[in-house]
């Protein structure tokens, strides 16, 4: 089973690379400390069309959040080495200065988090925070800013929005806080929304409300969304495309239905098999053995090989490139070579 290891470096450029809103080629992120170097992201490439929803699925330490934060340049430059090419709209993010990034953040690209209190300022009223962002980026008047704030709170489905404009973040319930954070993120009509597990900390009945809201907003506003999650069923609810990450690499990529219903990579298959559902009662679950690799150690070959049940000798020799499974559906597994 011979293949060219060089293809790893130059992943096939997607056909619509020119018209894509987001283009990431061969992104690498390394965290450097005195004791070790952690290779958190290792040659990730993807592109995203305007108005498309990409879900990056992965477990803790897979590099999913790191990838997204790199796109926003949120990593402390002192301890981070970023390589590769990133473009969002007309901005080549990988070449942007911190000053340029500040003007892009919040206007072109917005971000929402798992914990709303990380992005909402506890000492300002909700209305002030939204209006502030609008005024800063759009250079409009105060009245216009507040009108926009009210409009946004209505848009994200906050009940009695006039009253909530004057509320402080801690006065809101978890679900409302999440909605308020989404309102702040949408205040300057971004073309790209980055969502870092925004529903993970929410209760089931609230999570579904937020997911439905996000999908509605995405369609109405025509935003592109990159949604990071560890939960396959959340991806099933919201994604157009899915990228499954493992140990800093994309191991499977494709339309959501193909990846979740006809998954190709053994890791994706294992994740699906080990997701518990009621009808498995009384049976042992088919768990993936072992634990994810330590990213401080550089590893030869496919990083999933030690846990993979269909491992071959060739798997341990070089990193498998993304190989086409069917049209638009790729998996980094030698079983498809």
């Amino acid at each position: 089973m011979a293949y060219d290891t060089n293809t790893v470096e130059a992943s096939p450029a997607p056909p619509d690379a020119g018209t894509a809103l987001v283009e990431v080629r061969d992104l690498g992120v390394e965290f450097v400390s005195r004791e070790s170097t952690t290779c958190a992201v290792n040659g990730v490439s993807f592109s995203l069309a305007p108005g498309e929803v990409l879900c990056i699925i992965g477990e803790s330490g897979s590099g999913k959040s790191v990838t997204m934060r790199a796109l926003m340049k949120l990593h402390p430059p002192k301890y981070t080495r970023i390589s590769g090419y990133m473009r969002v709209g007309d901005h080549e993010v990988s070449a942007c200065s911190e000053r340029e990034m500040r003007s892009i953040r919040g206007s072109q690209i917005s971000m929402i988090f798992q914990e709303p209190m990380t992005s909402l300022d506890p000492v300002y009223r909700i209305g002030d925070q939204i209006a502030e962002t609008v005024i800063r980026h759009k250079k409009c008047s105060r009245a216009e800013g507040y009108a926009r704030a009210l409009e946004l709170l209505k848009l994200v489905g906050v009940p009695s929005p006039e009253r909530r404009l004057n509320a402080y973040p801690h006065e809101l319930s978890g679900g409302l806080r999440q909605r308020a954070m989404i309102a702040v993120a949408l205040s300057c009509s971004p073309t790209l929304l980055l969502a870092d597990e925004p529903t993970t900390a929410l209760d089931a009945t609230v999570q579904i409300q937020v997911l439905v809201l996000l999908r509605r907003l995405q369609q109405e506003l025509g935003m592109a969304v990159i949604f990071v999650t560890h939960d396959l069923s959340v991806a099933a609810q919201i994604a157009d495309k899915v990228a499954v990450m493992y140990a800093g690499r994309i191991v499977e990529y494709g339309p959501v239905a193909k990846v979740l219903q006809h998954s190709a990579h053994p890791y994706t298959k294992g994740m699906l098999a080990s997701t518990v559902s009621g009808h498995m009662r009384g049976q042992a679950i088919e768990a993936i053995p072992g634990s994810p690799p330590d990213m401080r150690v550089r590893m030869e070959g496919c990083s999933f090989a030690p846990r993979c049940k269909s491992v071959m000798p060739a798997c341990r020799q070089g990193t498998p490139p993304l190989l086409t499974v069917s049209h638009g559906h790729e998996a980094a597994c030698l079983n498809f070579a």
Binding site: Q207, A236, Q261
Partner: peptide, 20 residues
């Protein structure tokens, strides 16, 4: 409120509104 694994089976209307 449980989410389905099937992308064809999406929820469009939350079963209940509001927070606890």
């Amino acid at each position: 409120s449980r989410l389905s694994m099937n992308p064809a089976d999406r929820v469009n209307e939350p079963p209940i509104g509001g927070d606890p």
